[in-house]
Amino acid sequence: MKKQLLEFAHGRSGDKGDAANIGIIAYDDKGFEIIKKQLTVSRVKRHFEGICFGEVERYELPNLRALNFLLHNTLGGGGTVSLKHDAQGKTLAAALLRMEIEI
């Protein structure tokens, strides 16, 4: 059955220079197992094709039931150099939660 990640997790995103950071937090332990399994580096990189042009780093924070992603070369240069409407990547956590996963 296909489900949207939004059902299992919430999160927040922001900028670190030209990289975007996306923190994804599962609502419960079961949700954490799902996001740990589904949100692999390659899956996230594929999801953000055309947005993220660099490496994707992935970190686990089990105490918070959370994953943190760093998407390099994503914000059009970052800071005031960026011409993007969302130059700080504020909406990218929501963009990751659009992902459809097979349960």
Binding site: R12, G14, D15, G23, Y59, E60, L61, L64, A66
Partner: peptide, 27 residues
């Protein structure tokens, strides 16, 4: 939790002039 994850990189290496905090230890 959302704020803890805001604008961080490697959570085990949160560097400040005062220390290197490990965000994975936070409960």
């Amino acid at each position: 939790a959302e704020q803890l994850l805001y604008e961080i990189g490697d959570p085990e290496v949160y560097i400040t002039p005062d220390c290197v905090a490990d965000f994975t230890s936070i409960k």
